[in-house]
Simulated assay, not measured.
Amino acid sequence: MTSFRSDPYLWLHLAGLAAVPLWLFVAWLGIAAGYPIAPTLLEIILLVSVGIVPILVMQWKRPFSPFGLLLFSLQPSQLSLAQRKMLQRLQSNRTHFLTGLGVIPMIWIIGQLYTLAPLAQGATPIPNHVVGLGVAAIALLAANLFWQVPLSVVGVLLTRPSQFDATEPYPVAAISAAFTSPGFPVQKILPVASSAQIAAPPTPGSTAPEPEASETDAIAIPTPDDPPDPSETPLASVETAVEASAFVEPAAAVAEPAEDESTTDEMTE
């Protein structure tokens, strides 16, 4: 079973990586607001504790389920066998290693944002540094979410087909407690064509079935090109016979009065 790599939910979450630069830009504006109220190292530790650690713990303990979109998530009973195997792979050591490794570049980026903060100090709309730290923490939390979830998806996509086939599907009853699924549970989000709706192409040797003959088809309608049937009486001969009978009957009717006149003559004599 290698079709798990074509699951649209996985690729949608991979596309979520495009949102990471936007959230980092918002965090940069927050860090650049006002003047620092604490040493830079202390603020970095604060932002890492609020914006990075919660997502890392979630991915280790209760991973984010990729089978959802915006405010909706698929019900556990609606997940296919392959999708339940993907959930099992999200709990693997490879996924934990990737998510843990992904923390390192995020911490480095926070340090770079502090280095570049003076460039945005005059352009940030945030009034002071305290509010800016709150905005930066929330933005880093969102950026880390859009960073860690695709990393876990990459861990699933890197699974060998034979290893994926041997994976046990996650129990349906335990999915809600083991995975984070924000949003309203629904039965369907993305339209998926079923196999019954896809018509199989005809084989080269097959022919289309002939339609059944109806009662009207059983009546043969002669055409001008059809030769006359010798067993049938021609229409012209029928008309001749009718005309002949019409001439014979009056003759017989005239002959009868002639016989009556001869009998009357004999009686008079």
Rank of each mutant, 00 (worst) to 15 (best):
H96S: 15
H96K: 15
H96N: 15
F97C: 13
F97Q: 11
L98W: 11
L98G: 04
L98C: 06
T99I: 09
T99A: 10
L101W: 09
L101Y: 06
L101M: 11
L101D: 02
G102M: 07
G102K: 03
I104W: 03
P105C: 05
M106F: 09
W108Y: 15
I109F: 12
G111C: 09
G111F: 05
Q112V: 10
Q112H: 10
L113D: 02
L113F: 03
Y114G: 08
T115F: 11
T115I: 11
T115Q: 13
L116C: 03
A117S: 12
A117N: 10
P118R: 01
P118K: 03
P118Q: 08
P118V: 06
L119E: 10
L119S: 12
L119M: 10
A120T: 14
G122M: 13
A123V: 13
T124G: 05
P127M: 11
P127R: 10
N128K: 10
H129Q: 09
H129Y: 04
V131P: 07
V131R: 04
G132W: 08
G132E: 09
L133A: 07
L133R: 03
L133N: 07
L133G: 04
G134Y: 10
V135A: 03
V135Q: 02
A137N: 01
A137F: 05
A137S: 10
I138Q: 00
I138Y: 07
A139N: 00
L140D: 02
L141Q: 02
L141M: 08
A142R: 06
A142D: 01
A142K: 09
